[in-house]
């Protein structure tokens, strides 16, 4: 790495509340890796896809306001949420490929004294680790290889699709999370559910679908020999961990699968303690697979 990596840091709403542990851990991990994270105090919610259903132009403008803040800071955005990643990158892709949309959106931004030129890129922690930071550099920082862990990488939907707006991983054979797991000394488990959906978007709308889906993914990874899951997305984490018990009841099967945030797994390998990374906040305790 020639220069120090610096990002406008966008943890996303979930990791400022329900999944706080992911936010806290990401900050600790970034410090250990020498990545600078700069807060965005004005940044609003990206809309999590729901604002897209409400009003398309509003969704674009709200996101453009976030990009304008990062543009003023002179930095790209790093998020730790796949849904934020997908929503923001899709908005940014549409703005960058349609001068008409960019102009219309800037008309709206002008009423609050803002302007977006279209120079910001949005990334997530996973991409930064597997991309700009680099797997070899990450490997060098590992002090406690996780060599006893067999981990199911759960990419989830929004770090892969739509690939025209996302584009980092191949949606049919993603590698980044598998490679990060290997760099931390652990063994990735292959299973078909790794590119599928956790069901989060319908948690409150189609409860049974969401719970059966969550159980299906967890059981798939378990069948292929995983002793834990890791996900780059806090919403996937909410379903796979917080709601695992409800999912178990729905399918009448015991699952008992610990689920880590990506930052937590990296943190463990870099020598952070279970307290540092907030493991007591998980509903399915990961303590039995810790060493």
């Amino acid at each position: 790495m020639a220069d120090k990596l610096r990002y406008a840091y966008y943890p996303g709403c979930a990791s400022q509340e329900i999944t706080k542990e992911a936010n806290v851990t990401t900050r600790l991990v970034a410090r250990k890796l020498g990545i600078e994270l700069h807060d965005m105090p004005k940044a609003s919610c990206c809309g999590a896809g729901l604002l897209t259903d409400y009003d398309y132009q509003l969704y674009i403008a709200i996101n453009a306001r976030i990009f304008a803040e990062a543009e003023q800071m002179g930095m790209d955005i790093m998020t730790i949420c796949s849904t934020c990643l997908m929503v923001m990158r899709t908005a940014n892709y549409n703005l960058k490929t349609s001068p008409e949309l960019l102009a219309k959106t800037n008309e709206i931004l002008a009423t609050v004294g803002l302007h977006y030129r279209g120079t910001v890129e949005v990334k997530q922690l996973l991409w930064v680790l597997a991309g700009e930071y680099g797997l070899n550099n990450l490997k060098k920082k590992v002090v406690k290889p996780l060599d006893w862990m067999k981990i199911a990488p759960f990419y989830g939907c929004h770090s892969l699709r739509p690939s025209n707006a996302l584009g980092f991983d191949d949606p049919e054979m993603p590698q980044s999370l598998d490679k990060v797991i290997e760099a931390l000394g652990a063994q990735p488990v292959d299973y078909s559910g790794k590119t599928k959906c956790c069901g989060f978007q319908v948690d409150l709308v189609a409860v049974e679908t969401a719970e059966v889906m969550t159980a299906t993914r967890l059981l798939d990874g378990k069948k292929h020999g995983a002793n834990c899951f890791v996900t780059p997305c806090p919403f996937c984490h909410i379903n796979l961990d917080n709601y695992q018990n409800l999912a178990e009841k729905q399918v009448e099967k015991k699952i008992e699968m610990p689920v880590f945030h990506l930052s937590q797994l990296v943190g463990l390998a870099l020598g952070l303690t279970p307290q540092d990374i907030g493991l007591s906040r998980h509903l399915v305790s990961p303590s039995r697979i810790l060493r």
Binding site: P162, K196, G199, A206, T209
Partner: peptide, 12 residues
């Protein structure tokens, strides 16, 4: 339509 889970497989 509200039961769509937004997995984006269809569009992909």
């Amino acid at each position: 339509m509200w039961d769509c889970v937004r997995c984006i497989h269809c569009t992909q």
